[in-house]
Amino acid sequence: MSALPVPPLVDQHCHGVVRGDPDDDLFASFLTESDLPAADGTSFFDTQLGFAVRRWCPPLLDLEPHCPPARYLDRRRELGGAEATRRLLGACGIADYVVDTGLGRPGELLAPRELAAAAGGAGSHEVVRLERLAEGLADRAGGLSSFLDELATGVPAAARTAVAFKSVIAYRHGLDFAPEPPAPAEVRRAADRWLVGRAPGDRLTDPVLMRHLLWSAAETALPVQLHTGFGDPDLRLHRCDPLLLTDFARAVRPTGCALVLLHGYPFHRGAGYLAHAFPHVYADVGLALTHTGARAGAVLAEMLELAPFDKLMFSTDAYGLPELYVVGAELFRRGLSRLLTGWVDEGAWSSGDAERVAAMVAAGTARRVYGLAPGDGASASFG
């Protein structure tokens, strides 16, 4: 079959990119989930992600594919950070960015509208990180009662402008939390413990307060994104298996809130099962595809084994570098193209169904879940 026409992508979970020109060490730090430098004599460019960056990004900066890292970084500096970002984002084919604004220091990253403008006028939509919201309220609160009052109004207020909430309870505690909402007295005691002796900027790690935030967000009926699976060493991977959310998914369903399970790898098949078992659970394919590089198609195939096709969404989880948007989009397009074209060619799928599923995963489901307007961009093709 010929290449599959698909709409411009909706990146349903991503972050801003750094302002200016990252130095070589900062650039390399975005190629790994490790929070430490590479071992002596090694490079983070020698990874599936590093090779993918060298394959897909150099031509956008007038270089040959697979050019040496030093030459690529030199060329990036020649162009300047703003021009490199404009070229790279402009080539991604992403029509809308759904941006988690809870990562990075203030002013360090491009804001959602700046990110979209650098991409040539794409749409931008904010995801509010619950823990960051509570931390900001605690920084300004005059005491326990003031904090609880601000928390009670702060989540509904954020829901008026955001398209979703996100929680990193997987990082701060683990997904093996009690599924039911905590009682008001329990919340009050937890808030009192947290606020006593707290310095401005201290992170929220109390599982009771994070459960309270999750349920407060669910009651707004906006989608709630949850980190699952791998990430930096701040988490404990065995406590990030999305299957640990089974009881919470069951308990939260009456609120009408959609749960979006992010990343998943290496537990992505479990995320696919939850999307299969619960009508309000969705999963994305972000981050895992970027880091698995040439093996991205295999990971995507495993996600498509059990997850209903209209419950799976594209994302990059790009953070810091515009290159990560390029790689995420390119690996997704090519991986899905090979899979669906192969299934059509062997007679397992019809070409019409393949085109319909490609459009859902690329953009249609995200537009439905987050209430985004239909895209106006022209169709693009895989391959």
Rank of each mutant, 00 (worst) to 15 (best):
Y97E: 01
Y97L: 01
T101Y: 00
G102R: 01
G102Q: 01
L103V: 14
R105L: 15
R105F: 15
P106N: 09
E108H: 11
E108T: 11
L109F: 11
E114A: 11
E114P: 04
L115Y: 00
A116I: 02
A117P: 02
A117M: 00
G123F: 04
S124E: 04
S124Y: 00
H125M: 01
H125D: 00
E126C: 13
E126A: 11
V127T: 05
V128G: 03
R129H: 08
L133I: 03
A134G: 10
A134H: 09
L137H: 03
D139R: 05
R140F: 06
G143P: 03
S145I: 08
F147R: 04
D149P: 04
D149G: 14
E150D: 13
L151E: 02
T153G: 04
T153M: 03
G154Y: 00
P156V: 02
P156Q: 04
A157C: 13
A158V: 10
A159M: 07
A159H: 06
R160E: 15
V163C: 13
A164R: 03
A164H: 03
F165K: 07
A170E: 10
A170L: 09
A170Y: 05
L175P: 11
L175A: 09
L175S: 08
L175G: 08
A178W: 12
P179L: 00
P181R: 05
P181D: 05
A183I: 10
A185G: 12
R188E: 15
R188G: 07
R188C: 12
R189W: 07
R189S: 14
R189N: 11
A190R: 08
A190W: 09
W194D: 12
R198C: 05
A199H: 13
P200F: 02
G201F: 05
D202T: 15
D202N: 14
L204D: 13
D206P: 12
D206Y: 09
P207C: 05
L209E: 02
M210P: 11
R211Y: 05
A217E: 04
A218M: 06
V224L: 13
G231P: 07
D232S: 12
D234L: 12
R236L: 11
R236E: 10
R236P: 07
H238T: 10
R239H: 12
R239K: 10
D241E: 09
L243C: 07
